[in-house]
Design a protein around this nucleic acid. Structure first.
Length: 283
DNA sequence: GCTTGCGCCTGAATGC
DNA sequence: TGCATTCAGGCGCAAG
């Protein structure tokens, strides 16, 4: 599941390969993948022809390629999206949605089984696409403001996990790392945000950073410059997860069986002993 | 304005 | 065996 660390791994993999190359031609093979490009697939293809890629940037779970024109290609991987660099002659992937033909015989390919991800061309978005202007900074961004986050979190009237997943409060955290950070901070996911003490907020934010940085270190180990495979990394991450996906297995801290609850049409994993349910819970 | 819930989407896993 | 159902979950939008 591409959350911040996976997206950063992709960005680091792409940077040395695509920066400096020219996009010779773009083919949109599935219109849904460019649904957020309001001018449509043909415009998407036309706007990018002959553009030079001058960078590879990331904010939260979004990735963008600044172009020589000052515009940018903005990408979100959704649930199943991948950005792969392949030789032009390589067999097209089954779920290939958009193909960028780059100079020097390589393709940048957007492959996305579930089509929850998508691409768009952002006008003048090279520095920061305005389409993601509403997203908060991510916690490993140097300019992330801990005090603003803490105040914003405690001002909410919701459960702490819901707040962590809200990209306008803090970006880059998804279901997996939210559960991991809450477990590390010994906080139940339904803890009302307004009852969090300052020290608990500090602890939570520290654990969010630890979890993200640790995943990033693991994810950065095995990619190939010509094949940036998000799924290839997931197996490695899985081995270091403390609660996510570990229903009924012993808590690594206290041994109590990890519980899995339905939450926001998905799952939440937590330790019933280390993370007791608050008397007053908010979902 | 803020919070909450749903629909989008495909394929693997599961159930009958 | 084969068909139907469930599940995974980030985001945008609409409703409350």
């Amino acid at each position: 599941m591409p959350e911040l660390p996976e997206v950063e791994v992709v960005r680091r993999g792409l940077e040395p390969v695509v920066v400096g190359k020219t996009i010779e031609r773009v083919r949109v093979l599935h219109p849904r993948s460019v649904r957020r490009h309001s001018a449509g697939p043909a415009d998407f293809e036309d706007r990018l022809a002959d553009q030079r890629v001058v960078g590879a940037s990331r904010g939260g779970k979004y990735l963008w390629l600044p172009l020589g024109s000052g515009d940018a290609v903005l990408a979100h991987l959704g649930m199943s999206g991948q950005l792969l660099v392949q030789r032009r002659a390589a067999t097209p992937e089954r779920h290939l949605r958009v193909a960028f033909e780059l100079s020097q015989g390589h393709d940048l390919r957007f492959v996305d089984q579930r089509t929850f991800g998508g691409l768009l061309v952002s006008d003048g978005g090279a520095d920061l696409p305005r389409e993601i202007g509403h997203i908060a900074r991510d916690p490993i961004d140097m300019l992330f403001d801990d005090a603003v986050f803490g105040a914003g979190l405690r001002r909410r009237r919701t459960g702490v996990k819901r707040a962590l997943l809200d990209q306008t409060l803090i970006s880059g955290v998804g279901n997996i790392y939210a559960d991991e950070a809450l477990w590390a901070a010994r906080l139940h996911y339904a803890r009302p945000t307004e009852t969090l003490r300052r020290a608990e907020v500090d602890r939570l934010l520290a654990e969010v950073r630890t979890v993200l940085m640790s995943a990033l270190r693991h994810g950065g180990t095995s990619f190939d410059t010509l094949y940036v495979d998000v799924n290839g990394e997931s197996g490695y991450f899985e081995r270091s997860l403390a609660v996510y996906g570990r229903a009924d297995q012993p808590c690594l801290r206290c041994g109590a069986p990890i519980r899995r609850d339905a939450f926001m049409n998905r799952s939440s994993y937590s330790c019933p002993r280390c993370q007791p349910r608050p008397r007053r819970a908010r979902w």
